[in-house]
Every structure is written in structure tokens, then in C-alpha cells.
Design a protein around this nucleic acid. Structure first.
Length: 262
DNA sequence: ATGTCAAGAAAATCTTGA
């Protein structure tokens, strides 16, 4: 089973790129972030025509998350991260697919920091950690995947010294990520490639992609029972080089997992 | 501070978030 995450940076503006990649990569499950489209403007017909089922949680202008599957049934569990009823941002979508609990997330960017946006990021992180703990106790295979807006270590940044004051790399942010991991989650890419330089995002500025000035901020956190089933994990880096591409590349893992409840 | 994108408000460009 191939499971992917892709911050599309505008699902309508990047639709040709998304469809081209779906056709090429043929993932079984895909989590999308940054739809940048209200609920009613999600390109449902094009996604269905491409052979995918979808659930999505849109929002005007910003944010927005979706889960797509190639023929698999999607049983939605929730579309709000618990812990703050005042939070109206569409950043979380949880669903049961093929016997795996899929948690699609778009963690707040948090810049500029310090400031209210950074406070919101850390609070969101706390809420995620609380939810993650509950999910581990379910004893069901779970994956937390998406755009975490965190570079976990210096290996994940092209020039770490330039990013220490950025919300994506501040000590508090990295600490929150490692605290989450310590609940018992496994960072799939680092598990398979502990020492390789792997990026999932390249800024639009200053030819960052051409210079490979990237960041690793899109992650898969696996619950324990999935770790031994992890066969591969890759970034479809070439997609970032396509015309009208997102600033992120799609990332995927391959699991040796038997599909239940199709 | 800079650089590059997309969406939205409003009617060509500007603002905002990333």
C-alpha cells in the first residue's frame, strides 16, 4: 500500500500538476494540505474522474486538507483537532482507510516568531500531542502525516544557522516535535534513511530548488505496529521541477499492509 | 530586507500568508 502526503499550495491552481502526479505515482491514499479553496470549490469531479474518492475540509483563501483514496472506502472519524472549539482553521482530517487510521494534518507555520502566530503553532502542537496519545491507546495502526512545518534536526535544513529564529526551526518547535515522537511514533523517512539529506520543500525564492536549498518538513509518523511493515519511503522530487508546481514535493511510503474493509 | 507564488477584494493593482 502506497500512502502519500502532498502540500499542493492551492488545489485549483495546481490541479494539472496534482492530476499528472496522481496518474504517474498511483498512490492508494493521499493526504493533501493547503487546498486554499472553500468547501464548495474543491475540484471533486476531476478527482473522481482520476479514479479517486475524496473527503475534504475546505476554507476560504487559506489552509484546507483532504484525503483521497484509489477505490478504498473512507470512513471519516473527525475534522477538527480537539482542544479548542474557537479554532476555525481547516488543518486536520482523520479517517479510517483500509484498517489504518489516517490523520492528515497541516500544522501552523507560526511565523513571524515570537508572536501570536507562533503561540498558536505551539498550542496546536499541544493539541496534536494530546490527540496522538489517545490514538496510540486505540491499539490500531495509525499514521500522522502531512505538513508539520518543522525541520526536526539540522540534517533537515540546507543552512541550519540561518533558520534558528524561524518558527519552523526554533528550539521550542523542535522540542515539541521530539516530545511527540517520544510517545512512541516513528519518523518513517529517518527510520529508513537515518543520515541522508532529504528535503520535501524548496522555496520559490532565489532558485531554491535549483540550488537544492531545501527543508524536510513533510513527515510520516507511524505507530509501532506499522514500523515493521515499512518497505520504502521517497520524495517525488522531480515534481517540484514541473511547471506551476507547489513549493512542496509529494512524499510517499510503501507499507506491506493487507487492506481490510474494502 | 530580500525574493516568488496564489487567492481575494475589487476593478489594476494591492494585501495577506506562506
Amino acid at each position: 500500500m502506497k500512502i502519500a502526503t502532498y502540500n499542493v499550495n492551492g488545489v485549483n491552481g495546481r490541479l494539472p500538476v496534482l492530476l499528472r502526479w496522481l496518474d504517474e505515482a498511483k498512490p492508494d491514499i493521499v493526504c493533501l494540505q493547503e487546498l486554499k479553496a472553500p468547501q464548495e470549490k474543491f475540484p471533486e469531479e476531476a478527482i473522481l474522474a482520476a479514479g479517486y474518492n475524496a473527503i475534504w475540509h475546505g476554507q476560504k483563501s487559506w489552509n484546507g486538507v483532504a484525503i483521497l483514496t484509489r477505490g478504498l472506502e473512507i470512513k471519516e472519524v473527525g475534522r477538527a483537532l480537539p482542544g479548542d472549539p474557537e479554532d476555525v482553521q481547516s488543518r486536520y482530517l482523520e479517517a479510517l482507510v483500509g484498517g489504518i487510521l489516517i490523520c492528515c494534518l497541516y500544522l501552523p507555520n507560526g511565523n513571524p516568531s515570537p508572536g501570536p502566530k507562533f503561540d498558536y503553532k505551539l498550542k496546536w502542537f499541544d493539541r496534536l500531542a494530546k490527540r496522538a496519545k489517545v490514538l496510540l491507546d486505540f491499539k490500531t495502526p495509525v499514521i500522522l502525516l502531512g505538513d508539520f512545518n518543522v525541520m526536526p534536526t539540522e540534517l533537515d535544513v540546507y543552512k541550519p544557522e540561518r533558520w534558528v529564529k524561524d518558527a519552523l526551526f526554533r528550539p521550542e518547535t523542535r522540542e515539541a516535535f521530539h516530545k511527540l515522537l517520544s510517545q512512541g511514533w516513528t519518523d518513517a523517512i529517518r527510520h529508513l534513511y537515518p543520515e541522508d539529506v532529504i528535503y520535501t520543500f524548496w522555496d520559490y525564492f532565489r532558485d531554491a530548488y535549483g540550488r537544492n536549498a531545501g527543508l524536510r518538513i513533510d513527515h510520516f509518523l507511524l505507530s509501532e505496529e506499522l514500523v515493521d511493515k515499512l518497505k520504502d519511503a521517497q520524495v517525488d522530487k522531480h515534481v517540484r521541477g514541473w511547471e506551476k508546481s507547489s513549493d512542496h514535493a509529494p512524499v510517499w511510503i510503501e507499507l506491506d499492509h493487507k487492506i481490510k474493509d474494502k
